[in-house]
């Protein structure tokens, strides 16, 4: 083929350069590995860590139950926080000044005070409001029951965590909604879609890409914030439970390690979940083309026949060398 002769060795000699070397990277990595190895070896021998105790308590039923309670607290309060947060974000973007102000005041209060203080308040709610009455003001209530019975410490813990978290979620969701180009809402509106349809089908799915990374952060943060519900006081979650055991057995350090291992385990699972969620909502953004493989297949066939084909999809026609030439093959691989 004449094309091969033209495109081949004479006109386009391949570059055979020695790659830039980075000797200090390797040196630094080796030094770092040595330091870590020394630390691990030392930690393994050090009696204060008491590894046998760690192994003994790691799967202790009290601990695994407490870990489950921590997970429950995280999941329930995050679900409420996300629903409330989305609502607040939409309220903040509403043209209605009343609705807008309500959301603003909520954020001001719940973001402006420490979560620990809020949790102490929720713990005291049974003292402040001794009974919950349902009825008209200044008349005999229809139903009345004592607060302490209606709201357990577990419920209060979830409420306290969720209401605080909702304020943060609201700002994350708002940032996500604002990140979507205004032309999207216009296009949906022009098609006759209602505001709600526009939100659910067009705006929210696109904002998810911006919302998920910080929201994942919040879930992980929430997992650890659950250790503060001891302020309620609620004592059945992972951290407080392991502290309580340590207080009896004097195994303080091993118990902290046990709790940390459980927290790390849950966090790792959450990070995997976040990865898949991000992938799901990156549709249409990344470099995924449905028939990419098919394109490549045709490219090599056509290339073998003619030597030159335009590549579909890129702005300018690109020349691909036939795969018969070994150097041409490598250039195609890097494309």
């Amino acid at each position: 083929m004449t094309n091969t002769a033209v495109n081949g060795e004479k006109t386009e000699p391949g570059i055979k350069a020695i790659r830039l070397r980075h000797p200090w990277r390797n040196t630094f990595a080796v030094v770092l590995l040595l330091i870590v190895a020394l630390f691990v070896a030392d930690a393994a021998m050090r009696p204060a860590y008491d590894w046998p105790a760690v192994g003994k308590y790691l799967f202790d039923q009290r601990i695994s139950q407490a870990a489950f309670v921590t997970l429950q607290l995280t999941v329930y309060s995050m679900i409420i926080a996300i629903i409330l947060g989305v609502t607040l974000a939409i309220m903040r973007l509403s043209p209605n000044p009343v609705v807008n102000s309500i959301a603003w005041v909520y954020l001001w209060v719940f973001r402006g005070t420490p979560v620990y203080v809020q949790l102490v308040f929720w713990g005291l709610i049974g003292t402040i409001y001794q009974s919950i009455d349902i009825g008209l003001p200044f008349t005999e209530p229809w139903v009345s029951f004592p607060t302490r019975v209606a709201l357990s410490a577990f419920v209060l813990a979830i409420v306290g965590l969720a209401l605080n978290e909702a304020a943060y979620m609201a700002e994350i969701v708002r940032a996500g909604l604002l990140s979507v180009d205004s032309g999207q809402e216009e296009a949906a509106t022009a098609l006759g879609m209602s505001w709600f349809q526009t939100m659910v089908r067009v705006i929210v799915p696109q904002s998810m890409r911006v919302i998920i990374p910080p929201a994942g952060n919040e879930v992980i943060s929430m997992l650890k914030t659950t250790s503060l519900v001891t302020a309620i006081p609620f004592t059945l979650e992972l951290y407080t439970r392991s502290r309580d055991i340590a207080a009896v057995t004097f195994d303080t350090v091993p118990m902290l390690i046990v709790a940390s291992i459980w927290y790390l385990f849950f966090t790792s699972i959450l990070m995997v979940g976040q990865y898949f969620l991000e992938k799901r909502f990156a549709r249409g953004i990344g470099d995924r083309r449905p028939d990419k493989k098919a394109d490549d297949a045709t490219a090599s066939v056509a290339g073998a026949m003619t030597g030159v084909i335009p590549v579909v999809g890129s702005g300018q026609p690109t020349v691909v060398l036939p795969p018969t030439d070994p150097r041409a093959d490598s250039s195609k691989g890097e494309r």
């Binding site: 180009d181 032309g183 296009a187 949906a188 022009a190 006759g192 879609m193 696109q206 909502f281 249409g284």
Partner: peptide
């Protein structure tokens, strides 16, 4: 207003296709 817009098609300068849909 949405019902009225159904019968009026609009094409924008910047296309405004929904990027998360094929």
């Amino acid at each position: 207003a949405a019902r009225q817009r159904r019968d009026i098609g609009m094409v924008f300068q910047r296309f405004n296709l929904f990027p998360h849909m094929t």
